[in-house]
Amino acid sequence: MADLKKQIIAQLNLKDLKPEDIGDDQPLFVEGLGLDSIDALELIVLLQQEYKIKLANAEEGQSVFRSVRTMAQYITDHQGKSTA
């Protein structure tokens, strides 16, 4: 998950934030890391670019991007099963 945190920081340009500053289960949106809908687009791009994973439908995003742990689980479950 440390690599995924580094990728999120780079993709979202989270200046000066360190991977250890992001909790595995910390909410990524609103009250947690404070990400918004624009950042959700960036995370979708990250999944496609880094892991060749395309979200099957937009509604999945809410559960997939809940935290770093849920993202990591989604990647683990879908790597090699790309719908792209």
Partner: peptide, 21 residues
Amino acid sequence: TGDFLTSLYKYLGADYPKLYK
């Protein structure tokens, strides 16, 4: 500038992670 503003943020204890973006 970025490092200074980060140090000021930590000093103020704002607890507002959105600042990082």
